[in-house]
Amino acid sequence: MRSDRIFGLVMIVVALGYILSATTIRSSFMSDPVGPRIFPYIIAVATLLCAGVMVLRPDPEVEWPRGPALMNLGLALVVLIGYAFAIRPLGFVIPTIIASGIISYQISPQIRTAILSGLGLGFGLQMMFKSVLGLNLIAIRPEAAKFLPVIQPVVDALDYVIQILKLILVSVYGYIAHLLSFIF
């Protein structure tokens, strides 16, 4: 009941704001019969209607998380937002270790497994994306590497291993193709 009403009211406010904002869209000399404002108006009016229905005829109330569960969700949100801020200045590995460690701990509260899965995902995903799939991903920024000098050597070593594996695979593939070319 209540959450539908609140959502409906929020949407009514948003839709009114949308209309207000749409009135400030400027027309240009290239005019067409509809113009850039009409379609947003239509959407906003439809939103108002639906939101009105939600306020007047709400569905039964759903159960929202409370107390510790809500704290948990809030923490997850903070971690994700923090991750979004951190990935650019710090590079990929450190934020990933921390963020996935925390999320892992939230799902299964054991310190050891959380640290292990954080480390595993941090380095493992870096390998997968950078060395195997070839995405342009910076493992760690030089500025950040000053404080944690261990990361870069580990990443380099792992990358080295992957490159060797790749070489072996490519040569095996080449050899098989070579053999096949004799048969056909």
């Binding site: 994700l80 937002i81 991750y83 979004a84 801020f85 990935i87 650019r88 990929f92 990933t96 963020a99 996935s100 460690g101 999320i103 892992s104 701990y105 799902i107 299964s108 497994t113 959380a114 899965s117 954080g118 595993g120 995902l121 995903l125 994306f129 995405l135 342009n136 991903l137």
Partner: peptide
Amino acid sequence: PSYVLLPGVTMIAFVGIYSLTSSSFELK
């Protein structure tokens, strides 16, 4: 185990969008 899977999925989501747009605005 889900305690590896779920953080993994989250990070893949972030990497995908980040490597496409390289902007932290899009991540937020």
